[in-house]
Each structure stands twice: as structure tokens, then as C-alpha cells.
Design a protein around this nucleic acid. Structure first.
Lengths: 189, 189
DNA sequence: GTCTATACACCGATAGAC
DNA sequence: GTCTATCGGTGTATAGAC
């Protein structure tokens, strides 16, 4: 039996995360799993597309269990947001690992996974929003700030790669809870 | 003589911007320019890498002339920032076009262009910082907010692609000037 | 300065032995 | 369930005619 399927998927994740869809060639995948091309097609009859789908599903579950789960707890909003920041730092390896969702918006796989990328981002935003309404923000303000949070995290990942420094990602994570919870101002916002 | 070199580069830009480095195949480049493979190698003896370099240089100049130039003017800080937002909206086609710098941090070309990507991002940040110090912010606060601005723009580009909506990018651009110029608070920031 | 033709490596995918 | 061998297609890059 050699390898459990979920174990294969687990080995596939870093390949897609590091090289993106097109860069995740069967050669690299073969090397990462230790399986030959034909064996891979035995486990994934639809080939690379099915592998990418499996990886996306796996990472989505992992993200839900580690990053979104703290948001669903019954602690204070501030505590839940700080827990998310800590989980994000782990999930993205201090900002040095890429976001699979953002990678899958690029190149030829853009159309393939567009619906799932959209859903993944919206799920994240929709988990953040009620935390902020519980903190006293209006539903509109909460949704907007939730979107801003995701924007800042994605942008920080870009700068962390581009500047080759984990400082932007670390700083954004650290300032996020206070920034999201600060009282809404009618005037200058 | 057929085509001026700068005209060729101009036609190359959308190819690299849409497909990234690896996705910008010679077939697509050939179609976009109307030139055969051999002709391309006549103009760019070092092949695709030289084409990408030319595109990066061209886009950097274009970015400097349209986005950074308003920041160097002698108008009020608020006016300069609003001018940047307007230029960004044009440069990124309402958020629907990608950032070449962020694309060039991915895949096999990451190492090739890392230094130039870093320089491009830092140049942008360093153009924003003095605008914010002129507005009364400390140098540290100004630099941090300048970095935040770039982070938000990059993140908004990701969400605009991922959610298939120009709303995030439009909103970030609109709220940027006020957000960057609001008085620094010692307490909740 | 552009073309046609082609070299050679690698791509994703499949056949068939074991 | 994994292997070796191979398919057709495409990738980047070159040679040589015009």
C-alpha cells in the first residue's frame, strides 16, 4: 500500500505553495513524494488538476482548523483576534510561506479555481465580521474592517517576500487586533 | 527596421503582466509582438531573461513617471497623496492589472529579480515617507505608514483578483490619503 | 532584421509489465 | 500500487537562408 493518500497530499502541499500551479511540475511532485509519474496518476486519475484540488481542499481545512477556529470561540473579541494573529504567524511561517489562494488567482489556473478562491476569502471575512460586531461595531463597519484585515495580511505577505524580511508581516499581525477594535470615528474615516 | 526596440518592449509588458515570468512563453510573446522567435533573439540575445529585464525597467520608469512623480511635487501632502491614488487607479487599471514586482517574487525568477523588486518597493516607500513627515508625522511613524500604504495596495490587488471585484482596490485607494494623514495617537495604535 | 526549420529538454499524460 | 518506457505537445534557444 506504501502511502496513504492524505499523506501524499501532505507532501504535495509545499510543492504547490512554493512553485504555484504551473511551477508544480510532475518532476518536482515526483521527487517530493518519492512516487513515479504513473503512481501519481493511479492516485489522481485526473492528473495535476486533481492534485491541486486535493491540495487546496487540504489547506482550506487546515486553515479553518487553525486560523478560523479561534474566531469561533466564545472568548472576548480581543482575545480571539490575538489568537488568529498567532495562528497566522504559524500558518504562514512568519510570512515566509505563500498564500495558496493568492497563488491560485494567477496564470492558467485562475479560471479553474476562481470560485473556490473567492469562497475561501469570503469565508475568512465572514468569520472576522461577527467578532467585530460583538465588539460594538456596526455591521457595515465590521465587514469593511474584516476585509481590510485580509487585505493587510495579503499585502504583508507580498512585502515580506519582496523585501526579503519578515518584519512587515510580523508588524501587521501585531497591530491588527488593536486596529480592528479601535472605536469607529465619524470624522476622519 | 520594422520595430523600434522600445516599441517591442511596450508590447511585451501586458504579456508578462498577465502571465508572469514563466507563463510569458515565447509563443505568446511572438504573437503579441508579431515577431518570430529568431527575431526576438536578435533584439534580446539573452532571451527571455533579457526581455523580462527590459519589461521590468520599462515598467519601473513608467511607475516613477506616473505614480511617484506626484509625490515629488510641492503641493500639500493631502493633494500629493490624492494624486497618487488617482495615478494608481490608472496604473493598475482599477486593480484589474497585476503588480509586476509582486509577480517577480514568485517561482523560478524570484532569485533573478529579488534585488530589483526590493529596490522598487523601497523606492516607493521612500517617496511616501517625506510626504508624511511634511504633514507633521515623526520619521518613524511616517516610514511605518508608508510601508502600510504599499501593503494595503498590494493586498487590495490580491483581493480584487480573488473576489473578482474592483471594490476592494477602489475603496483602499479612496481611504488612503485620510488614513495616512490622520494624527498619530499614542494610545490605541 | 525577419524568416523557416530545427535542436534538445521537459511538460502532462498513458500503456503495459510486474 | 509502483515501476519503466514512451507518447504527442510545447518549452527555450539556434542555425542558416534571404
Amino acid at each position: 500500500m506504501a502511502l496513504d493518500k492524505s499523506e501524499i497530499v501532505r507532501k504535495l502541499v509545499p510543492v504547490f505553495r512554493a512553485f504555484g500551479y504551473e511551477g508544480a511540475t510532475l518532476s518536482r511532485i515526483s521527487k517530493a513524494t518519492g512516487l513515479g509519474r504513473a503512481s501519481l496518476y493511479h492516485h489522481f486519475p485526473h492528473g495535476k488538476q486533481e492534485m491541486a484540488q486535493a491540495v487546496l481542499n487540504y489547506v482550506n481545512e487546515w486553515f479553518d482548523a487553525t486560523v478560523l477556529e479561534p474566531l469561533r470561540s466564545s472568548h472576548q473579541p480581543a482575545k480571539r483576534l490575538m489568537a488568529m494573529s498567532e495562528s497566522l504567524n504559524q500558518f504562514y511561517n512568519c510570512g515566509q510561506d505563500t498564500c495558496l489562494l493568492s497563488l491560485f488567482t494567477l496564470g492558467e489556473c485562475h479560471d479553474l479555481f476562481q470560485a473556490q478562491v473567492k469562497q475561501g476569502l469570503n469565508t475568512w471575512i465572514e468569520h472576522l465580521t461577527p467578532v467585530l460586531t460583538e465588539a460594538g461595531l456596526s455591521i457595515e463597519e465590521a465587514h469593511q474592517r474584516a476585509e481590510d484585515a485580509v487585505i493587510q495580511i495579503q499585502g504583508a505577505l507580498v512585502l515580506t517576500r519582496g523585501l526579503n524580511s519578515t518584519e512587515p508581516f510580523q508588524r501587521i499581525l501585531q497591530q491588527l487586533p488593536d486596529q480592528l477594535l479601535k472605536p469607529a470615528s465619524q470624522i476622519s474615516n
